[in-house]
């Protein structure tokens, strides 16, 4: 049985703090026995008492402190309790940490990681359920990395913390913490053919039909990745259509290679995100499609996103607000031409 995403992240924190004394952890309610709101930080304050800074409720202040620590030779990891609270630190991230390396003519680095538990579907209501990293799209100098169960989440966090000189927003998903890692081995991930791109923040491509046959490319990241796989499976069972799911982890800068290659094969594109669509990830993917992939498109790309509303407390309202497997299927059926249906042609 593989690890959960939560275990993978927690063990990576232990490993990094064991191996590199420059790694410090900063955030709210980190001390054991509580160990952080979602337990990614459990055990760390016991093992590394001097390097776990449990903070007052001061997101702007302690994100800025971490920026200074990073400039001063440490490798700070900030835990934002609920990702929603990162907006309190937006000035520190955009006007300070993300600018310094370039603005100071590369005289300094800000090797900072800010971990953001994002996402809904857990009934936390309007200010504790959002997927807000889209508001940092277009902030120069600020990297956004989002993990998912198909990559080694702990390794991804370690790359961001120990090998990346940029300030990185590391997006986790609250619903995903309890999910098991679904490792790719020998070109397979369970019943799917699987590819993982090279590079520090890989994109994963998954297909129930292998990569020779593709009717459609479905792009999803973070918390939407597993829903996309589920939708791809249903599309195969119910419609006998082959969907390639492409899951990037480098959201800013946006890694487009795997997406472009898949679209060039499939000719149809649906992009999904958990936040409302305007000015977001899907819009960025669609406008960043290279010419060759665009030329291969046989229908207008579709975007699947949340309704443009706060996320309600009520389970019924929350579920209707956030994009689900049904929404993905509907968008895929909208974009695929009915005439070429395999079931129809037998």
């Amino acid at each position: 049985m593989s690890q959960t995403v939560l275990e993978s992240l927690n063990q990576a924190m232990h490993r990094m703090m064991q191996e590199d004394e420059r790694v410090h952890l900063i955030g709210e309610d980190l001390l054991d026995p509580y160990g952080g709101a979602f337990k990614v930080s459990r055990g760390l304050s016991t093992a590394f008492e001097d390097r776990v800074w449990t903070t007052p409720i001061s997101e702007a202040g302690f994100v800025g402190v971490a920026i200074g620590m990073a400039m001063g030779g440490l490798l700070p990891v900030v835990e934002i309790m609920f990702g929603d609270f990162v907006l309190l630190a937006a000035d520190q991230l955009i006007n300070h940490g993300a600018k310094y390396a370039w603005m100071y003519n590369e005289k300094v680095d800000v090797p900072l990681v800010v971990r953001l538990p994002m996402g809904g579907r857990r009934g936390y209501g309007p200010t504790h359920s959002q997927t807000l990293e889209k508001h940092f799209l277009g902030a120069p100098g600020l990297a956004i990395v989002a993990t998912n169960p198909f990559v080694d989440s702990g390794q991804l966090l370690e790359t961001a913390t120990r090998y990346d000189r940029r300030p990185v927003l590391f997006v986790e998903n609250k619903k995903m913490y309890a999910r098991r890692q679904r490792p790719i081995q020998g070109g397979r991930c369970e019943a799917m053919a699987a590819r993982i791109s090279a590079g520090p923040y890989p994109s994963v491509s998954l297909s129930f039909g292998g990569f020779e046959t593709a009717d459609l490319t479905l792009v999803a990241y973070g918390g939407m990745a597993e829903l996309a796989v589920e939708a791809a499976e249903r599309l195969l069972i119910e419609d006998e259509r082959y969907c390639e799911v492409v899951v990037p982890t480098s959201i800013q800068p946006l890694e487009m290679d795997a997406i472009a290659q898949s679209v060039a094969r499939s000719g149809h594109l649906v992009v999904a995100e958990e936040s409302p669509g305007a000015g977001g990830f899907s819009a960025e993917v669609i406008s960043a499609l290279p010419a060759a992939a665009w030329a291969a498109l046989r229908a207008q790309p579709q975007r699947v996103s949340a309704l443009n509303l706060p996320i309600a407390n009520s389970t019924a309202l929350e579920a209707a607000t956030l994009p689900d497997v049904g929404d993905l299927l509907e968008a895929m059926r909208r974009v695929l031409p009915a005439s070429s249906s395999r079931s129809a042609t037998g």
Binding site: H24, A60, G61, F62, V63, G64, V65, A66, I67, G68, M69, A70, M71, G72, G73, L74, P76, D91, Q92, N95, H96, K99, Y100, M103, Y104, N105, K107, V108
Partner: peptide
């Protein structure tokens, strides 16, 4: 917005204080 050998400036009122605090703590830790 200048920088030279441990001297930094930024144009956001008050926003520079956390960075200065973080630098002071990094120095202390090291």
């Amino acid at each position: 917005h200048i920088c030279d050998g441990g001297f930094y400036t930024n144009g956001i009122q008050g926003g520079i204080v956390p960075g200065a605090l973080g630098l002071s703590l990094a120095k202390k830790v090291r």
